[in-house]
Design a protein around this nucleic acid. Structure first.
Length: 239
DNA sequence: GCGACAG
DNA sequence: ATCTTGTCGC
């Protein structure tokens, strides 16, 4: 999969915020035509292993068929990183290794699901927006916590939803995908998708559990990769 | 100034 | 996110 970067990622926090504000104008909340006939959907998730000397980031991209939700392809990457976790600047920390994982994927998904927010972001440019803009693929942000958005708790019935707001502005949907968890799933558009379609597709792709199947699969995969890395830490140190 | 803060 | 003991439930 080809990824085009129009801006650097190794920047200061002030520069990162300026880049977000600029790129936010390129985000589209219109449903992309390819969403009418989805064949492939990919979930993306990262994990970290930190030592005194360095922080290693891991990323997994799991491509699934739709509507079967069977794994078609898996891309992965690991990379030493320096950008810290700063609330609101997550994409500058996660994008480098995500791009590396995406570049190893041969197929071209019709939809991407990212672990994190999209529009529901201080500058309306969360991780999912950034991933969508650099890939050109319709993208959904799917987060487990609300971050800066407010909402009324949706009914406990799976499928129930309420609008996510930042001030008066609707930025996503609080979606009840799992009845046994207090918090709902926080879904917002990344790029080339509307708020309602993002919620509809996220729910349709969550036959069980809290997360959409591709996102859950990516989480399981990257967690396994990280665990394996740590188990072999001794050998890796000798390289 | 204080608290909160995706992953 | 990661760390990390104990605890509750299927």
């Amino acid at each position: 999969m080809n990824v085009t970067l129009a801006h650097p990622l190794d920047v200061t926090t002030a520069e990162a915020r300026a880049i977000q504000t600029e790129l936010a104008d390129r985000v589209s909340l219109e449903d992309d035509p390819r969403l009418r006939d989805i064949h492939l959907v990919a979930g993306i998730d990262n994990a970290y292993a930190r030592t005194a000397a360095r922080t290693t980031a891991f990323s997994a991209v799991v491509v699934m068929s739709w509507p079967e939700l069977k794994v078609v392809e898996v891309g992965q990457a690991q990379r030493e990183i320096t950008f810290p976790y700063v609330p609101g600047l997550l994409s500058f920390r996660e994008l480098p290794v995500i791009i590396e994982a995406l570049s190893g994927v041969e197929s071209t998904p019709d939809l991407l699901i990212c672990d994190g927010h999209g529009l529901a972001h201080p500058r309306r440019f969360g991780l999912a927006c950034h991933v969508g803009v650099v890939t050109g693929i319709p993208t959904i942000g799917s987060a487990k916590k609300p971050f800066v958005a407010s909402y009324d708790p949706p009914d406990m019935t799976p499928g129930a939803r309420s609008v996510l707001h930042i001030g008066p502005e609707p930025v996503g949907i609080a979606l009840r995908t799992y009845s046994r968890r207090r918090l709902p799933l926080f879904v917002s558009p990344g790029d080339r998708i509307s708020i309602d379609t993002a919620a509809d597709l996220a729910f349709a792709m969550t036959p069980k559990g809290l997360l959409p199947a591709p996102q859950q699969a990516a989480h399981n995969t990257v967690t396994s990769i990280r665990r394996n890395y740590i188990e072999h830490a001794a050998e890796n140190e000798n390289l």
